[in-house]
Each structure stands twice: as structure tokens, then as C-alpha cells.
């Protein structure tokens, strides 16, 4: 790979060369900037850490849902939409990373013992951490250079892990609340629909392939 291409993919990770993509990143990061600003100026209410932590987690989930919605929406909104799937995936990762940062640094004060105990003993934190750890390799490989290096097929296979991460994220949200709330149920429902769409499509494709093989 040429140095120019490397530099290009490096900048693509941050902002992208496409103006729409760049705008999506800028607008997409605005809630984070806004929440941190409110937090640092003491405008996040009585429990600012918790409010910030939850807001960041919720935005991560929102971007995951949008990312998952791209494929089913392509027939309606045009195939070019796929260009922005990676943008939303990376936004989801950035928010998940900030969410984890707030938990580790601000909430737990980097108390390793408490954090390890939390991850091992608290199922909702175990599941949440799993979701985040899955997103890490996906984010690292979300650039043109890595796609070329891995090859399209392997890359696609790897990135199917986002389905697992989405399920884990939805379950994490359902488990963190003390009782049935509307929001976690809504996100679990959206993710379920988006994954079932893929499952149905896959089943159909397989059935077609089987019948073709028989014919």
C-alpha cells in the first residue's frame, strides 16, 4: 500500500473525504460535545455522571440501530446509502468508547478492583463490556486499508459480529433498569426487527440455493 493511500485511510477513519460523511461525523459527535459541555459546566442535573453515562450509552445504541437499518433501507433510499453505514458504525463505537470511559474513569475512578468485580459479578456490565469489546476490532478494521488487507469476504464475515454486539447492547440496556421501561424495550424491539429481517433474507436465499441445486 502506498504511503498516500495509508494517509488517506488514516484520515478516513477520523473524518472521511466525502463531504456528507464528514458532516455526519460532525453532527453525530455534537451530542457528545454538548453533554460534556453541560457536564463540565454543572448543568446535567443532580447526578451528572450518571446522566452523562446514560446519554452516551443511548447514543451508541441509536447509532448501532441506524447502522443496522442501512441495509434494509437501501432498496428504498438507494444503494449509495451503503457508503454511510461505516460512518454510523464508527459513531456507535465512539459513543460506546466514551460511555465506557465515563464508567471507568469518572464513575469508578479507575478502581481496578471494583471494576473487575463489576465485570465479573454484574451480568449487565459483563454483557455491556462484551458489546464494547466486540466493537473494538470492528472499529479498528473500519477503513479502506483494512478492507483491502482482509479481503471483502473475510471483512464482511468479521463485521457480522456487529449483530452479536447489538444484541448484547440491547440486553445490557434492558438489564440496567429496575423495571420495565419503554426505552430499553423500544431499542430491543428495533434491533430484533433489524436482525430478523436479515435472518428471513438469509433463510430465503438458502432455500432458493437449495432448490437451484436440486433442479
Amino acid at each position: 500500500m502506498s504511503r498516500a493511500a495509508a494517509a488517506h485511510s488514516g484520515s478516513a477513519l477520523l473524518l472521511g473525504s466525502d463531504p456528507i460523511r464528514r458532516a455526519l461525523y460532525l453532527f453525530g459527535m455534537m451530542p457528545a460535545v454538548w453533554y460534556f459541555y453541560l457536564g463540565l459546566t454543572d448543568q446535567l442535573g443532580a447526578d451528572p455522571q450518571n446522566t452523562l453515562e446514560r446519554a452516551l450509552g443511548l447514543w451508541a445504541l441509536r447509532f448501532l440501530v441506524v447502522g443496522l437499518a442501512i441495509t434494509p433501507l437501501r432498496p428504498y433510499l438507494g444503494p449509495r446509502l451503503i457508503r454511510y453505514r461505516r460512518t454510523f458504525g464508527l459513531l456507535a463505537f465512539y459513543y460506546a468508547a466514551l460511555h465506557v470511559f465515563v464508567y471507568l474513569v469518572l464513575d469508578q475512578g479507575l478502581n481496578v478492583q471494583a471494576i473487575v468485580a463489576d465485570i465479573l459479578k454484574r451480568p449487565y456490565i459483563t454483557v455491556g463490556m462484551l458489546a464494547f469489546l466486540i466493537l473494538v476490532p470492528l472499529a479498528v478494521t473500519s477503513n479502506n486499508a483494512m478492507i483491502r488487507k482482509l479481503g471483502g469476504q473475510a471483512w464482511n464475515k468479521l463485521h457480522r459480529l456487529v449483530y452479536v454486539a447489538s444484541i448484547a447492547a440491547a440486553v445490557h440496556f434492558l438489564m440496567v433498569v429496575k423495571t420495565w421501561n419503554f426505552e430499553p424495550v423500544l431499542y430491543a424491539f428495533l434491533i430484533a426487527v433489524l436482525l430478523l429481517y436479515r435472518l428471513a433474507k438469509y433463510a430465503k436465499k438458502r432455500a432458493r440455493r437449495l432448490s437451484e441445486a436440486r433442479a
Binding site: 460534556f36 463540565l40 454543572d42 447526578d47 452523562l52
Partner: peptide, 11 residues
């Protein structure tokens, strides 16, 4: 609640 400043509240 109300202790510390902004985001920096120690448990």
C-alpha cells in the same frame, strides 16, 4: 448527590 463539581464526584 450535589457533592463534588460537575462530572467529578468521588464515591
Amino acid at each position: 448527590i450535589g457533592e463534588g463539581s460537575g462530572l467529578f464526584v468521588r464515591r
